[in-house]
């Protein structure tokens, strides 16, 4: 028998949890305002800063990261392709177009309503992608994300055109480039829905694993394939729309996190889904912290940092030698 990597999932989970906790505390302490965690106890001003700005920002990063990682995972299961995620499937761009149209046509509507519109648009855009991606030959797995990226680009161009017409380009860039610097208490709470979707994903983890085995295997095991597709579509669309509306698009999270977790721990989602969510949180939080300190006291949006970090990791994933011939 050849060498088997003896996995210690519990230890990995412990390490992941610890890392996330450290990042969480670091995120609470990094920023422009005078602040140290020790002073919170007896300094009401510091406590205010913590509660109004730092904590919401940190929570928003954690929630968005977990949500996006899970969305990527589900997307990969539905499309049966390891290289798709909301920003490489037109989902995020459709959400952008949706929120733009909502802003134009229903200026008086509340944020949740607009988010709902954005989710609907994301769902429509993603359905078109999934239906079309099906027609690409399964022997060429790289065509699917390529198709998705250009498809997203076309939708993005439509959004740019509309925004430019309505003189809303400024707004559009808020949605296209993720940035946590505007997150305050009262402005991010919608993101808690992302936590809900993570919980749903955990509940149906086994079903998702079986879906990844293919349509025939899942029907053979008595899974309602069409319904699972729809559920996945809803979850992915809602998560994407939420992040786009609240903090703006963050690319690559949904792509690199599930791929790396899969390499380390396999694809039995019952055991890995929590790790995927936690690693997504950690990655986004880490990139946000980098963006805050690299040019202190100015901030670099997390979307830009992630474009560099995630892009590099993605290229590495593409060109690394496969583990088996």
């Amino acid at each position: 028998m050849t060498i088997i990597s003896v996995d210690t999932p519990t230890r990995r989970r412990l390490v992941a949890g610890l890392g996330l906790a450290i990042l969480f505390l670091a995120s609470l302490s990094v920023g422009v305002g005078e602040f140290s965690l020790a002073r919170v106890v007896n300094d009401p001003e510091a406590l205010q800063l913590l509660l109004i700005s730092r904590l919401p920002r940190t929570l928003a990063a954690v929630l968005a990261g977990a949500g996006l990682a899970i969305a990527g995972l589900i997307m990969q299961t539905l499309a049966q392709n390891r290289f798709v995620e909301p920003s490489t499937a037109g989902t995020a761009q459709s959400a952008e177009l949706g929120i733009l149209l909502a802003t134009l046509l229903l200026p008086a509507a509340s944020l949740p309503i607009k988010t709902l519109v954005a989710s609907g648009a994301a769902m429509a855009g993603t359905s078109v992608f999934l239906m079309t991606a099906h027609r690409l030959p399964p022997t060429q797995p790289f065509l699917v994300p390529l198709f998705g990226i250009v498809y997203g680009g076309v939708i993005g161009a439509a959004a740019t055109f509309a925004a430019w017409h309505a003189d809303l380009l400024q707004f559009l860039s808020v949605w296209t480039n993720g940035d946590f610097s505007g997150v305050l208490r009262g402005r991010y709470e919608l993101l808690w829905f992302a936590a809900l979707t993570v919980a749903i994903a955990w509940l149906v983890a086994d079903r998702l694993t079986i879906m990844a085995l293919g349509r025939d295997a899942s029907i053979g095991l008595g899974i309602n394939h069409a319904r699972m597709m729809q559920l996945g579509l809803v979850v992915v669309s809602v998560i994407s729309a939420l992040t786009v509306v609240v903090v703006g698009m963050i690319p690559f999270v949904g792509l690199v996190v599930p791929n790396i977790v899969s390499r380390l721990m396999g694809d039995n989602l019952r055991g890995t889904i929590v790790c995927v969510a936690a690693s997504g949180s950690g990655l986004v939080l880490g990139c946000d912290i980098i963006g805050r300190i690299i040019r202190f006291p100015y901030e670099i949006p997390v979307g830009t940092v992630m474009g560099v970090v995630g892009g590099l990791v993605f290229l590495w994933l593409l060109f690394r030698r496969p583990d088996h011939a």
Binding site: D206, R263, G266, N268
Partner: peptide
Amino acid sequence: SVIASRLRVRELVGFGRF
């Protein structure tokens, strides 16, 4: 049947019990 997921043999067989 092509299995693209990274699953252990025991996990895969276990899904037969789903």
